[in-house]
């Protein structure tokens, strides 16, 4: 009996030789129903073409390294099962909206810069000495921000966002979701430091609520919700006399 195969069409781009990316087809054995797109790429790299470049690390949807366009949809390639596409070919391309460095590898510098600009860490006006004990939180206080803390910085939301695609000055979904995660944290006192970035015209106000960022998020984070709620909060903060808080 002939071995079951699947066709993978992967983007190839060598900055030293190519003027534009192109697709290259590979027929590979589809031997296991549990195979994912990342397994297929690893097979190509190990057995067919060792020059294929792509990012990956954990293989279990945690590290956020292996985000790619799978048949036109941003997905973690370690979570995209080949059985969902077979017998049709699977087209694997680098994430949309980012410069392509080589093959399936995108330049994530812009995202890293934006992420840092919202200071996604706990900011305290004055650190208490260790002897003062923990910053205790109730379950309700944790529930306020927990959803947004699930973000793994995979950038699928940026790839799905047409606003970012049309204007890459936009701060973007993940950075705003993470800013909100810390702004909602009862231990944090950094709201006023983040506001100039998130309430800027290229911050939350650039978003026109397409909502696709929340659809593609592999961790169930709802960046669209974070952005819209931040719009409302910042509006109330600047319009109501009791809206200000640190």
């Amino acid at each position: 009996m002939a071995e079951k195969t699947i066709t993978i069409k992967a983007t190839r781009f060598d900055p030293d030789k190519d003027s534009a990316p192109r697709l290259q087809s590979y027929d590979i054995p589809f031997t296991d129903e549990a195979m994912v797109v990342l397994d297929a790429l690893n097979y190509i790299k190990a057995h067919v073409d060792g020059s294929l470049s792509y990012r990956w690390s954990c293989r279990m949807g945690i590290c956020g390294s292996c985000g790619m366009m799978v048949n036109g949809t941003p997905k973690l390639s370690c979570s995209a099962f080949l059985r969902d596409y077979w017998p049709k070919p699977v087209t694997v391309q680098p994430l949309n909206n980012f410069p392509i460095i080589r093959d399936l590898v995108i330049d994530m510098e812009d995202f890293m810069h934006k992420l840092k600009s919202v200071q996604p860490w706990i900011i305290r006006k004055q650190e208490l000495p260790l002897g003062a004990g923990e910053h205790r939180q109730t379950t309700a206080q944790i529930d306020e921000f927990k959803q947004f803390s699930q973000c793994i910085n995979c950038m699928l939301c940026y790839s799905a966002c047409p606003v970012y695609g049309l204007n890459n000055e936009f701060l973007g979904p993940a950075a705003i979701a993470l800013a909100r995660r810390y702004n909602l944290d009862s231990r944090d006192q950094g709201l006023t430091k983040r506001l100039p970035v998130i309430a800027d015209s290229e911050g939350v106000w650039e978003c026109s609520f397409v909502g696709e960022c929340s659809v593609v998020c592999p961790k169930g984070v709802d960046p669209a919700k974070a952005i819209q709620q931040t719009k409302l909060d910042t509006t109330l903060r600047f319009t109501l006399p009791f809206g200000n808080r640190d």
């Binding site: 036109g72 980012f98 410069p99 460095i101 330049d107 696709e212």
Partner: peptide, 17 residues
């Protein structure tokens, strides 16, 4: 790097768009 540009018909490529 190869610079990505948004195609003019981006809004036809996905039901949500």
């Amino acid at each position: 790097a190869y610079r990505w540009t948004m195609p003019a018909n981006w809004w036809t490529r996905n039901r949500h768009y």
